[in-house]
């Protein structure tokens, strides 16, 4: 069967690897853009390519959760790419450091971000299951997609103050359940 724009999503859902190959051909440049943008400070091409591969594997193995058309698929894939790249950062921060970043690279992260990255994605996701759906989305955008509070507000049609407030209240909820850990306190 010839894979095309018209049928690749359907064929992906049927588990046709030809469709996956087609998606890699069509979207590799786009995914690379997202991944490199997040991981460029590491200057590790292997890390970047590994992350790009993880994006396509993630998309293929979770395609049943995708809803929408071709345009939606590109955005969904980019969201996965951002998530995987942030996740890769988190993974990297838990690994022994083999080399130092170049002095010339401008890469400054907060203590919060640094500590956040020490936790595994599964640990963080488990904690978020205690939140309401909208708060969960906010936390995911904040910590898994590294979006600013302003960007989250625009995405969810909320005011920035509402996002700040929900993040603050969400952290309190997690803390009450003794799950706050890194979400709690003055981090945000």
């Amino acid at each position: 069967m010839q894979i095309s724009d018209a049928n690749f999503i359907k064929q992906m859902k049927k588990g046709n690897p030809d469709a996956l190959e087609y998606v890699v051909d069509q979207y590799a440049g786009l995914v690379k853009g997202v991944v490199v943008n997040t991981l460029k400070a590491y200057k590790d091409y292997y890390l970047v390519e590994e992350c790009i591969s993880d994006v396509f594997i993630g998309a293929y193995t979770n395609i049943k959760h995708f809803k929408g058309d071709k345009d939606d698929f590109g955005k969904w894939l980019c969201t996965i790419a951002k998530f995987k790249a942030v996740d890769k950062q988190r993974e990297w921060h838990r690994m022994p450091i083999f080399t130092e970043l170049d002095e010339g690279v401008s890469y400054v992260e907060s203590a919060e971000a640094s500590v956040m990255k020490q936790e595994t994605t599964d640990q963080l996701l488990n904690k978020l299951s205690n939140l309401k759906a909208v708060d969960r989305k906010i936390f995911i955008m904040k910590y898994f997609l590294e979006m600013s509070n302003q960007e989250i507000a625009e995405k969810l049609n909320l005011s920035k103050a509402a996002v700040d407030n929900r993040l603050y209240r969400g952290k309190k909820v997690l803390n009450k359940k003794a799950l706050g850990g890194l979400f709690y306190g003055k981090f945000i």
């Binding site: 997202v34 979770n62 995708f66 929408g68 939606d72 969201t79 996701l125 997609l145």
Partner: peptide, 10 residues
């Protein structure tokens, strides 16, 4: 998470 990404599409 991948289901939630449908709503969070960048």
């Amino acid at each position: 998470l991948y289901k939630i990404f449908n709503d969070l599409k960048l």
